[in-house]
Design a protein around this nucleic acid. Structure first.
Length: 793
DNA sequence: CTGTGGCTAACCACT
DNA sequence: TTAGCCACAG
């Protein structure tokens, strides 16, 4: 519960509650040291000066980190409120809190353990006036931010076709990540956004100030500014934080780095934990350089390497090591395990994305039943990790058809859903009528007959009178500026807002009741009840869930604060389900079995990241591959497809270059799935069995044959017995390989059954299928531009 | 003021 | 393929 009013850490009692058992031992009992290996122990006990803990995947860094905190407390080196411990995600913060609690007995004692953003909010609330904000400033989400920037772009009369607000938002975020306020943006950047970027940035910051708001990047930026310009404030915190601990240091951006440096200049007791091989947030401004430079930045630092892996089998570690070895300029770690080599990493190519999804589905079922030669596994122990969220769809489709339970992590988050945002905007307005952005969002939601024109009028009125939009709306109603149906509805809305505002303060009802009242009286609930789209019931459910979530907070403000910083959504763990998530979301997690689909050049490594960042981009993609493999404990299966549907277009894919980087000894190559020559075409053209047979043009065909991934798969599969067609449903004739067909060929197609080739027109095949009855169905297969329905499977 | 159809651009990851 | 935007009609 992180409402900011209740736990002001400065006033929090500092007395540590040492468990009786330890007190009886005179503080010498150090159970938290048990089970630590020598390296971990060194990192825990090095209490003087900077420490860099290079912790490879699965080497127990959280254990070391929490033990270090316990050690600080037990040795009385610091009080709980003198330790600053920062993480990136709320989940990591929560876990650390729990584990420290379990280790030391004080659960509530760590007021400064949290995410960068949560800690900065806490600090900024105290010093808001130093950057021209009031202490009750609001934190804008991406949506609000974009809306604001859109207005700015429009006001500057810039063509938002060529210069979209989206792009501006990205540029400004980038600058904020580098800790540049508008006046600090270097000249080299002045051409950004049609030469107006810096100007717009300044205007945007001013607008935020007027709104008494800040965006995500500001939380850090403002604190860095305050520390740089107010020595007294900086001193206060330098003295307060005797020990600083930083998790995932490789993901820090420049602003976070500066923030940490400024604070660490006091006692210099900063302990950073990270893994340069797992830096995967470059696109968000993370600087791997921060960790690579650590020893220069903090002279005399103790560097500890955690290399003993407790998570994965030898083969999995070996495969991961082989991939990451291709990166240059690493700090270098060699993970080892005391455990078995286990099963080799498995590699398999598929005909297309659908085949891949089907194969993985079957594999998962086999593993669950225990019919794959291994003990039965729970679905909860299996995960599919994809590069991009759109890859999830194929699996969802497939799993829905076969009734395999799954959960998707990532996707549109609960608090980012439209209905939740709308409801939150109402709550925000009930808390503060100054929240113009919230007002803009809901004036006409549900529809009140207030369009652009009405909103314009309200805005002008508000501006000329120097008041907020709610006040402006009130003036419009009273002055008769907005008439008719819209005027009446607006009057009702304003009255409603006043009423809810008063009710929240009256405390006659709980905030939960008021929230329900708001959703009811505003007509928002009715709005969705009347909606007949299939999503409506789900949205109503979400609203109910939102209200339920309120119960955990003391007041609406506390809840709003919490939500603005929460970016992860709690997931139900009760049911047995396969997890589908992105590689990014998987960092920090582990699963006994991991599937890594879609290892195709352009998709993974992603073309865009290579276009944008060249070799740096490729190396980050490789680290992503490393992260993916090292999530696996026992089983890891990598796959790719020769064809994929992109923008409704079929594209032939090349196996990812990362596949070639897998060391052979640790990999077992399975035979390509989904492409078994069903008679004719296979006999006529042996090349049509396996990858690449779909190719119609020689150039593209050569591409695939010459692609390293393909070659390897070919040669390896030759060492293995030739695959037998497993079941008839896997049998398919390569419809698009028209060169291998002649008129009169009998063919079999998974969906349409048996048929006969009637004619061949260039790249088109006309096939007459003998479906049941006398009716003949004619289908055309157009190479390269086939529609989804026309393609085999 | 709202709803619709056609056009265009986008498809990467997230605190 | 799909989402988002704009122009236009009702």
């Amino acid at each position: 519960m992180s409402s900011f009013s209740d736990d002001d850490a400065f006033e929090a009692a500092a007395a540590p509650r040492v468990p009786l058992s330890q007190r009886a031992m005179g503080g010498f009992a150090q159970p938290y040291l048990e089970g630590l290996n020598p390296a971990q122990r060194e990192a825990v006990e090095a209490l003087n000066g900077p420490v860099l803990m290079l912790a490879g995947a699965g080497t127990g860094k959280t254990k070391a980190l929490t033990a270090r905190i316990a050690h600080l407390l037990a040795t009385r080196s610091a009080q709980p409120n003198e330790i600053l411990a920062v993480t990136f995600t709320n989940k990591a913060a929560r876990e650390m809190k729990t584990r420290v609690g379990a280790l030391t007995g004080h659960i509530e004692g760590m007021p400064w353990l949290g995410t960068f953003h949560a800690i900065c909010v806490k600090l900024l609330r105290r010093h808001a006036e130093l950057v021209g904000l009031k202490t009750n400033f609001t934190i804008l989400d991406t949506d609000d931010q974009l809306r604001l920037l859109k207005q700015q772009v429009a006001a500057a009369e810039i063509d938002d076709k060529r210069w979209p607000a989206r792009m501006l938002s990205g540029i400004i975020d980038g600058w904020k990540n580098k800790a540049w306020v508008p006046s600090q943006v270097p000249v080299a950047e002045s051409s950004a956004f049609d030469g107006k970027g810096i100007e717009l940035y300044a205007a945007y910051q001013q607008r935020l100030k007027d709104l008494n708001a800040c965006d995500f990047g500001d939380l850090l930026l403002h604190m860095v500014t305050i520390f740089q310009t107010h020595d007294g404030v900086l001193k206060e915190y330098q003295e307060r934080f005797k020990y600083i601990l930083v998790d995932e240091y490789q993901d820090t951006n420049v602003a976070q780095y500066m923030w940490l440096r400024l604070l660490a200049q006091g006692h210099k007791n900063i302990c950073c934990v990270g893994d340069d091989d797992q830096s995967i947030y470059g696109w968000r401004g993370a600087e791997v350089g921060n960790i690579l430079r650590f020893e220069k930045d903090f002279p005399g630092a103790t560097v500890v390497r955690l290399e003993q892996n407790y998570r994965s089998t030898g083969h999995i570690l070996g495969a991961a090591a082989g991939v990451i070895a291709a990166n240059k300029g690493r700090l270098g770690k060699t993970l080892f395990t005391d455990g078995d080599d286990g099963e080799q990493v498995r590699l398999i190519g598929h005909w297309d994305g659908e085949t891949e999804a089907r194969w993985i589905g079957e594999e998962i079922e086999a593993m669950q039943r225990g019919t794959r030669g291994i003990d039965p596994m729970a679905l909860n122990d299996m995960a599919i990790l994809v590069r991009a969220s759109h890859q999830m769809r194929a699996f969802e489709d497939r799993f829905l058809t076969i009734g395999l339970p799954y959960r998707v992590i990532g996707g549109p988050r609960f608090y980012e859903r439209m209905e939740i945002r709308d409801a939150m905007a109402y709550f925000r307005l009930a808390v503060s009528q100054d929240d113009d952005l919230a007002f803009e969002r809901i004036v006409n939601t549900p529809k009140r007959g207030l369009g652009d024109k009405a909103v314009q009028t309200i805005q002008t009125t508000a501006r000329t009178n120097g008041v907020n939009l709610v006040e402006g709306a009130r003036l419009c109603v009273e002055g008769g500026l907005i008439k008719g149906k819209g005027g009446a509805a607006l009057r009702e809305l304003v009255q409603g807002l006043d009423r809810w505002f008063a009710q929240l303060r009256a405390e006659a009802d709980t905030h939960v009741e008021v929230a329900e009242m708001i959703l009811d009286e505003s007509g928002y609930t009715t709005f969705w009840q009347n909606d007949k789209t299939p999503e409506a019931p789900g949205r109503l459910e979400n609203l109910k869930e939102l209200v339920k979530a309120l119960e955990n907070f003391e007041n609406l403000q506390g809840f709003l604060e919490h939500v603005s910083l929460i970016m992860d959504n709690a997931q139900d763990e009760q049911d047995d389900k396969v997890t589908i998530m992105t590689l990014h979301a998987a960092k920090g997690l582990e699963f006994p079995a991991v599937f890594l689909p879609g290892w195709e050049d352009g998709l993974f490594p992603s073309q865009r990241s290579m276009d944008e960042s060249g070799l740096k981009g490729l190396e980050e993609e490789r680290r992503l591959a490393y992260v993916g493999i090292t999530r696996a404990e026992q089983h890891c299966c990598i796959s790719f497809a020769a064809n994929r549907l992109v923008y409704g277009q079929w594209q032939s894919q090349m196996a990812s270059r990362f596949i070639d980087e897998l060391p052979e000894d640790h990999v077992e190559v399975l035979t390509a799935s989904g492409l078994y020559g069903g008679g004719m075409s296979a006999a006529a053209n042996p090349a049509s069995v396996g990858m690449g047979s779909h190719l119609h043009d020689k150039a593209a065909s050569a591409d695939v044959y010459n692609s390293p991934g393909w070659r390897r798969l070919q040669s390896r599969s030759q060492q293995r017995p030739v695959a037998q067609p497993q079941e008839s449903r896997n049998m398919v004739i390569d419809m698009t390989a028209s060169s291998s067909h002649t008129v009169g060929d009998r063919v079999f197609h998974q969906k349409f059954g048996y048929g006969e080739v009637m004619e061949i027109e260039g790249d088109k095949l006309v096939i007459e299928f003998d479906k049941a009855g006398e009716k003949k169905v004619v289908a055309k297969f157009v190479v390269g531009s086939a529609q989804a329905d026309d393609v085999p499977f």
